[in-house]
Design a protein around this nucleic acid. Structure first.
Length: 218
DNA sequence: CCCTGATTCGC
DNA sequence: GCGAATCAGG
């Protein structure tokens, strides 16, 4: 199974959405959990909350994870080149609000939404103080006429919302298809979900659905 | 044992 | 670039 743009996009969405590699592998189909992880790393996606985590207050002793395979002939007195970088977590800056109509959208800071509707935080992103609930008014995204039906992945392009609706592989699976919020992969409405700022509970009505339609119910 | 992600390395 | 094998850890 090849990694098409679409599959990669789904991988990203799911990975950032908090799905485990196994789940993603199942959803995508045709790939193993390892393939998903490997691809995710190659894509630059990196280290979400993983079971193997650093201990707090205890500097992580860097040790090679799995140097078990055929080891190259070691130089007798070769100084062991230290592992370059332990991959410092890029701290995820708090997103004050999703710009409804960004004049020039900079790097969109992605705050993925966890299963419970909470906003994910990186492990090093402890400073939880919720950003002041910004007045956020979303313009209702109206479907354009041409996507009155369904937007298949064949219809995807740079200008339409790639928010997945339903589950891949199902007959009714399609994409949002509304014109995108310029600079983002999603329409204004879905940007509001993808880049949603933390709001006080009382202001959070419906639990935001996961981008890919939520965990598969089997 | 199950699960998780991380890493390596032959292909 | 890909992913199986293998690792460390919960």
């Amino acid at each position: 199974m090849a990694w098409t743009d679409e599959r990669i996009d789904q991988l990203k969405t799911m990975w950032e959405g908090g799905m485990t590699a196994s789940q993603i592998a199942v959803e995508l189909g045709g790939v193993s959990r390892n393939a998903v992880i490997g691809k995710a790393h190659r894509l630059g996606l990196q280290s979400r909350p993983s079971p193997v985590k650093e201990k707090d207050g205890n500097p992580p002793p860097k040790k090679p994870a799995a140097p078990k395979k055929a080891e190259a002939a070691p130089q007798p007195a070769a100084a062991p080149a230290p592992r370059p970088a332990p991959a410092p977590r890029p701290p995820v800056a708090a997103a004050p609000a999703a710009p409804a109509t960004p004049a020039q959208p900079a790097e969109p800071i992605l705050r993925s939404i966890g299963p419970g509707g909470f906003l994910r935080q990186g492990p090093g992103d402890q400073q939880a103080p919720i950003p002041p609930a910004p007045p956020r008014r979303l313009v209702p995204a109206k479907p354009s006429a041409e996507i009155a039906g369904k937007t298949s992945l064949l219809d995807l392009n740079d200008r339409i919302c790639k928010w997945p609706m339903g589950h891949p592989g199902e007959p009714d699976f399609h994409f949002c298809g509304v014109q995108v919020n310029p600079g983002f992969p999603y329409c204004v409405q879905h940007c509001g979900q993808a880049y949603q700022a933390q709001l006080p509970r009382r202001d959070r009505r419906p639990p935001p659905p996961l981008p890919f339609g939520g965990p598969r119910v089997r």
